[in-house]
Design a binder for these strands. Structure first.
Length: 826
RNA sequence: GCCCGGAUGGCGGAAUGGCAGACGCGGGGGCCUCAAAAGCCCCUGUCCGAAAGGGCGUGCGGGUUCGAGUCCCGCUCCGGGCACCA
């Protein structure tokens, strides 16, 4: 495709200038108001893919637009450079993860530059840099001191493929690993945790004030899963004198009269205590089956209700405190140890899971809520009148809940309790390419943090990375040997590393002050730039990254590392759509990548950027089809027209002499309307319509310039300048070049102020008024915008088409909405 | 199963309750050219009609309104999230 200008030469020249001229380096002392724009920290997987291009196109548009509006825009870039792929590559090829990662960083960086996106590169942060590792470790130690980080034995998710434990958040709903896809196993191991649950309420409540997509907030709320209810203590029948009680959690204390049995999880500590000799074999068999079972069998499979629920009777009974009757206690794997107390009161009539279990095991059902007449049967979980429930009879569910709760509290059987689905975050990983956890274990002093002056703890380079995935640091001959900082005796060094989500949980704070050496960042500087005004990234981070980052920010303030920093890091969040091809997500693993480099080398970065802006609303997914290349070329064609109009036209046109004519004034009005429209669209993230407005304007002024009637030169110049200015954030290279050609050597369009518009000129001087009869358009009349209702009606009635449609009789009703429309009802 | 989105020409999409289909892609025609490419200009929802003009039309069925792609009720299909969390 022959182009109007030398695309590659122009784009490369400006990319070099932007690097050299450093316009986007800002500091806390900048007199302009700060504005923090941030795209999500990428994992460096090689050259940018279309998802990156889309992300950074939006980000760069924002950076350039806000800068032109007079803000000191903080626009940092960095790399989430720890992670498994580098380790896996090392196993395959023998290349060290560091050199592998740094090569991928260089590739990504170069394609980000080829896109023409501008950053303050002085602030580049990389997770695997010793300076960053040091501060991640300092933060871990601060958490350790304040009790936010702790070590505990727990049933954990073990991925046999990755040979490491995973956070709950990294296990998919079907029980497989989000990375490798292997079926995750459950193992009892001692691991490091971070106390995210301590912030459960704040993480939930402060979502309300965030300007985030509602669905992301909903996903986080569901993930935190706060539920209010009662914890009650059930006496074990015949064991009252020992004081043996079973603690259960319920959100439905009103259904107590319907409890016909109880269930404990297979891992429940009281199972042995409760199991009588004649039931031991059965219970043991069930426990073995449950512990061998993977999450996939245990949760997801059985999750579909109606599947057989495995369980075994313990031989013990607990007393239903409402009826005084003993009910059997079962062990069943549909009750999870990790939630509530690991034991439940089972009410089959009002709980579907309990119903399924009761049916399978022939247990009785007592309804305590009257189902509606047309109810099909099974568990009824809706609202209704309480029955078979003694003092609760006749009440509605909500009232009965409260009454039952009070009854339990008064008798000291139960207490109010809030439970969360959210668990503490398991942060330790048995991997090499991650941030080492900076502690040692001393036989005398126990677990001791490495003193700050000995940080960073760096993993050795000479490690063997084996296909079995066995922890390379644990196998290392010397890394594990340490000296106890307290007693000076020999100690054992921790060989686990941190989940890479730790790195991405505070990088946005480090960006504010990446030069700090004795602390993660200067809190005053962070307080100046934070919060991130606009955060841009993929919807896939709706839960994990965003929840962890929110937690970290709050925790950093509370442990004293970030005084004055806002507790919520991201004021506005934008989640872009995915790039899809043939119905599935475009990704490296699917092998359906369409590399951006191909476009950089042909139509150019500006055309590709414009395509991403133009193709549809930024939230929507993009379908990459056979037609896509043609659309991208269309964007290139449009830029050619902009070029010809703004750079080449002036030399070939014969100008009018004298004052501007009405058609010149009309173009001047369009110019002001363009500014108004694009300004508004950019604020509303309606980029596709902003591009469309520029195209429409270009078409109009092109015709104006080529008309036989000579155009008015100042009108043309203003139109050309304005078009370039509003396009400057969207297509930075071609507009920069055209501007310099128009204004002379050294002129920089991106240093100009964003254009203003005159509201008087934006208003149309003539508008088309639609005249309808019974809602059907019968005529269109050109009117002045300020005409009155009466004038509008009179004009409309004068129309012969309208009179024909009315058939001679006067309208029964007139709806006049000047200057848009008049509607006659016949 | 529950909770969110979404459905508009051949395609991507546009439209504060007031001209449905802006803009672009694709398609058609014309100009330029020896010719082609590029460029420039015009047309392009659908049906009837030679035309003027008219009928129909925003997933389906109802409703509110002078007027509904837009608001309300009930569905269908597609996409996403959650899913034994008591």
């Amino acid at each position: 495709m022959a182009r109007a200008y030398d695309v590659q030469a122009v784009e490369q020249r400006w990319q070099q200038r932007w690097l050299a001229e450093r316009d986007y380096e800002v500091d806390a002392g900048d007199p302009r108001p700060p504005w923090y724009a941030l795209c999500m920290y990428p994992y460096p997987s090689g050259p940018a893919h279309q998802g990156h291009v889309r992300n950074y196109t939006f980000g760069d548009l924002l950076v350039r637009h806000r800068t032109m509006q007079g803000y000191a825009v903080l626009t940092p870039f960095g790399f989430d450079s720890f992670g498994l792929p580098a380790e896996n590559a090392a196993i395959r090829t023998g290349e060290h993860p560091r050199s592998f990662t740094e090569a991928r960083i260089a590739e990504l960086k170069s394609s980000v530059r080829a896109l023409g996106a501008v950053y303050d590169w002085r602030r580049e942060v990389r997770s695997h840099d010793p300076s960053y590792i040091r501060q991640s470790q300092a933060i871990f130690l601060a958490f350790l001191r304040s009790g936010l980080a702790y070590r505990a034995q727990a049933p954990v998710n073990w991925c046999p493929g990755c040979q490491t434990v995973l956070a709950n958040e990294q296990v998919l709903a079907d029980g497989t690993c989000e990375r490798s896809g292997d079926v995750v196993e459950r193992r009892d191991l001692e691991q490091w945790f971070v106390r995210t649950t301590a912030y459960a309420d704040e993480l939930l409540d402060s979502l309300d004030d965030l300007d985030w997509p509602e669905r992301v907030k909903t996903m986080q709320r569901n993930w935190i899963g706060r539920s209010e209810g009662a914890e009650l203590r059930l006496a074990v029948a015949g064991r009252q004198e020992e004081g043996l009680v079973l603690r259960v959690f319920t959100t439905r204390p009103d259904t107590l009269f319907g409890m016909t049995y109880a269930v404990v999880a297979p891992e429940h500590p009281l199972v042995d205590e409760l199991t009588t000799a004649d039931h031991r074999d059965e219970v043991e068999a069930l426990r073995r089956a449950a512990s061998a079972a993977s999450e996939i069998e245990r949760t997801s499979d059985g999750g579909s209700l109606g599947l057989a629920k495995r369980g075994a009777f313990t031989g013990s009974h607990v007393v239903n405190p409402a009826t005084g009757e003993p009910v059997p206690v079962y062990v069943a794997d549909y009750v999870l140890m990790g939630y509530g107390t690991g034991a439940i009161m089972a009410v089959p009539a009002e709980d579907e899971r309990d119903w399924a279990f009761a049916e399978a095991h022939g247990l009785p059902v007592v309804r305590t809520v009257q189902p509606p007449d047309d109810f099909a049967g099974g568990a009824f979980t809706g609202d209704g009148t309480k029955i078979n429930s003694g003092f609760l009879n006749g009440l509605a569910v909500a009232t009965a809940k409260e009454r039952a709760m009070q009854w339990l509290v008064d008798r000291d059987i139960g207490s109010r309790r809030v439970n969360y689905r959210l668990r503490d975050w398991l942060v330790s990983r048995q991997r090499y390419w991650g941030c080492p956890i900076p502690v040692v274990r001393c036989p005398v002093d126990g677990v001791v943090g490495v003193p700050e002056d000995q940080l960073p703890v760096l993993a050795p380079d000479d490690v063997e990375l084996l296909a079995t995935g066995e922890s390379p640091l644990r196998r290392h001959p010397t890394f594990g040997q340490a000296t106890c900082p307290v007693c000076g005796g020999p100690a054992e060094r921790e060989t686990d590393t941190m989940d890479t989500f730790v790195d991405s949980s505070w990088y946005f704070l480090r960006f504010c002050d990446p030069w700090a050496e004795d602390r993660p960042f200067d809190p005053a500087v962070a307080a100046h730039f934070m919060p991130v005004e606009q955060y841009i990234g993929g919807i896939e981070h709706a839960i994990l990254h965003l929840l962890y980052a929110r937690f970290f920010t709050k925790a950093l303030v509370d442990v004293g590392l970030a005084p004055g920093v806002p507790r919520e890091p991201f004021r506005r969040l934008f989640t872009q759509g995915m790039i899809r091809m043939g119905g599935s997500k475009m990704s490296k693993s699917k092998g359906n990548l369409v590399a951006p480099a191909k476009y950089f080398d042909t139509v150019g970065a500006d055309a590709l950027r414009l395509f991403h802006l133009f193709v549809g609303p930024p939230t929507d997914d993009v379908d990459w089809t056979e037609q896509t290349d043609e659309v991208i070329e269309g964007c290139g064609r449009f830029l050619d027209r902009v070029w010809r109009f703004s750079v080449e036209a002036a030399g070939t046109v014969r100008w009018a002499t004298g004052d501007p004519a009405p058609r010149d004034l009309a173009v001047a009005r369009s110019t002001h309307r363009l500014v108004a429209k694009v300004s508004d669209d950019l604020e509303r993230w309606s980029f596709n319509t902003a591009v469309a407005a520029c195209m429409e304007f270009t078409n109009d002024v092109y015709r104006y310039l080529r008309d036989e009637v000579p155009p008015h030169r100042p009108t043309y110049e203003a139109a050309a300048d304005t078009l370039l200015l509003v396009l400057a954030p969207m297509a930075p290279h071609v507009t920069a070049e055209a501007w310099e050609r128009r204004r002379g050597e050294g002129a920089r369009i991106h240093r100009e102020r964003w254009p203003a518009f005159d509201p008087d000129l934006v208003r149309q001087d003539r508008v088309t008024m639609v005249v309808q009869v019974d809602g059907k358009v019968r005529d269109r009349i050109d009117v002045a915008p300020e005409l009155t209702e009466d004038e509008a009606t009179a004009l409309a009635l004068a129309s012969t088409r309208v009179q024909d449609a009315l058939g001679g009789s006067p309208p029964r009703r007139v709806v006049a909405r000047p200057p848009r429309l008049v509607n006659f009802v016949s």
